[in-house]
Design a protein around this nucleic acid. Sequence first.
DNA 1: GTCTATATCATGATAGAC
DNA 2: GTCTATCATGATATAGAC
Lengths: 202, 202
Amino acid sequence: MTKDNSTEQKILEAAEEVFHEKGYDGARMQEIAQHAGINKGLLHYYFQTKDKLFEAIFSVALNRMVSRVHIILETEGTLEEKIDLIIDQYMNIVLKNPSLPRFVITELNKNPDRFIARHINKDAKNAFSAFLISVQKEIDKGTIRQIDARQLLMNMISLIIFPFIGRPIMQVFFGANNEEFKKLLGERREHIKIFIKNAIKK
Amino acid sequence: MTKDNSTEQKILEAAEEVFHEKGYDGARMQEIAQHAGINKGLLHYYFQTKDKLFEAIFSVALNRMVSRVHIILETEGTLEEKIDLIIDQYMNIVLKNPSLPRFVITELNKNPDRFIARHINKDAKNAFSAFLISVQKEIDKGTIRQIDARQLLMNMISLIIFPFIGRPIMQVFFGANNEEFKKLLGERREHIKIFIKNAIKK
DNA sequence: GTCTATATCATGATAGAC
DNA sequence: GTCTATCATGATATAGAC
């Protein structure tokens, strides 16, 4: 590793932290520079504009949010195996990186067209097709009830991700508890698996 | 209505639109003034600071997100009735105001402590207690399986709200379709009711 | 109450020395 | 490559005329 590379790395780590925390509008180049232990001038030397730096961070984050799911959806296996895999692996990602979903979804909403187009590619379509076939197979076998595969996938993603985004609102609903919420999130992995399987079984 | 009131009203409507769309950091006083058909000076005459104007908008939004649910949770009735009521009424709110959940949750996440404390009151605790009792009653009767009431409530809220926040990411997963997504949202009300009831029944 | 003009400040970005 | 100093812009907020 050259020293260039090391500085660039520090910048990327600092930028990720600040952008994830504050979003594009709330992030300050000054703060990113501080976190990286350098000054603004150097920051602009590596990434000319805030926009370019943001793009670097955002594309990694978006990829982290979708690629794993795409791979799993296409994997050979029964529907039940796919469901368990998605829940396990996706939970791992968001537990390790709790601010990721909020960041990606907030920024995606601010500028949907800008990013969606480049990510709706053949991979996405193939992945979903594979999942749809798995679902239809089980319906035909009679092991699960008639259900729209898109709604099912949306339900799974909703149940996994929402608690990480909606945490403060859920705390309002429950009435306080901060420690308990963490415990709930930990128990949630198995809870969701059972919940979904019950919901679809015949 | 006096003329004062009318101008204040115009400001509030404009501010709601801009804040909901762009968030606190992205919103500009200039843009709010334009939308209201006035100038920045007058805007500051009514609401001295951006912060105060934001507070006025945000408190209404947060209230819209939680009060209805609190009321329903406390209403007399069976668990099934409560579930249907929450889904129906909450769906109505977000369908009428699709940007509401995104706005509230994004801002809440940026500054959790600032707002949560004042909303975790006796109402919240009573509401959730009432729901918890309803759930326990059904478990005791043997009509539903053993389940954590907090997880169940979180699941309901997740299934209702997430699609409105996570729409762009779901479009990536599905591979495009914009019109279809609206159709999915419309069909979702009944879908969720069935999904949840199947998930909890014994 | 409403407008125009202006003060003040913070931010993204650049220039230039080392 | 890295730093300091500075520019240019745009945003909140205020002052003052009408």
